[in-house]
Design a protein around this nucleic acid. Structure first.
Lengths: 151, 151
DNA sequence: TTAAAATATCTCGATTTCGAGATAAAGGAG
DNA sequence: CTCCTTTATCTCGAAATCGAGATATTTTAA
């Protein structure tokens, strides 16, 4: 029966896609982590700092959505960055439920210093594909992601 | 200066690739987690069980390599599975440093019952791309991963 | 053969993340 | 306006993962 083999092949291919996706991201993450380790920041902290650095003040809520992290975890990460004087909390005057995370002078200086190099490093880490290939990869990944999300 | 724009574009594209990769995997993981939640197993536990189910007895060390998890974490996960009577530890007679994780009768019965459906679910989750596209995606991801790994 | 290096597992304490629920403020229906 | 629902943040305890180092065993090299 050919239908059965076909079905089986597709199932195995799906599992393999999942595994390869996981391993690829893991490899990339390890390199990225190495690249920022010397700052004394872990990837989550760096991601939050980067967000506030490039997008300006962010409601703590929004940070969680972008970084894909639970609300209780953001509180923790923001606490850590605040202790390091890289960001500070600012109450929102219009909506007193909201607290902004805002980058400090120290934070801005740090990022001015390291962010250009970080982007170069990231480019190197992802240079296993050329630009056209990366663009195509992004398209395919989005298809995959949207479908999974909309189930 | 065109070189500068080109450089900038490539850096941004790399960052975007990283972000999309992360989000795609996250979406997929969420669905997979949903699919196995009713078993009372988290993704790591399920991955270990699946490995031992489909590949036979595994040295605890090897499990860590395949599941991409630190050795101290495997001990913890294997403990949990052992408490649930899904796997058991077996000393290796040839090398007394080694302990195998081996699936139990309960574990085998459970997996016989749920694994076919799990594979179908996974196929559905990843059906945002057809088979040819998945094969190509795997190739591209491998290129990306190998390069990152070999830096 | 024996001392040193390598390997496998585990222990322990710390870090990161989570989920449930508390608190406070804002928005909406009647 | 008042009550109810929604939203934003935080607290707290638990779960998952890690790294450093301990222990036991095997392998290697002199």
């Amino acid at each position: 029966m050919n239908n059965k083999n076909q079905e089986e092949y597709e199932e195995n291919l799906s599992l393999k896609t999942f595994v390869v996706l996981t391993r690829t991201l893991q490899s990339i993450k390890e390199r990225v982590e190495e690249d920022i380790k010397y700052l004394g920041l872990n990837p989550t902290e760096f991601a939050v700092l980067e967000l506030v650095y490039s997008k300006g003040d962010q409601p703590i809520q929004k940070i969680g959505e972008k970084i894909l992290i639970a609300s209780s975890s953001i509180t923790y990460v923001v606490d850590k960055l605040e202790k390091k004087d890289l960001i500070k909390r600012k109450p929102c005057p219009k909506d007193r439920r909201v607290t902004y995370a805002s980058i400090t002078t120290d934070g801005t200086e740090l990022m001015n210093q390291v962010f250009p190099d970080h982007k170069k490093a990231l480019k190197e880490i992802l240079s296993g594909l050329d630009m056209k290939e990366k663009e195509e990869l992004i398209e395919q990944l989005k298809k995959l992601g949207f479908h999974a999300q909309s189930m």
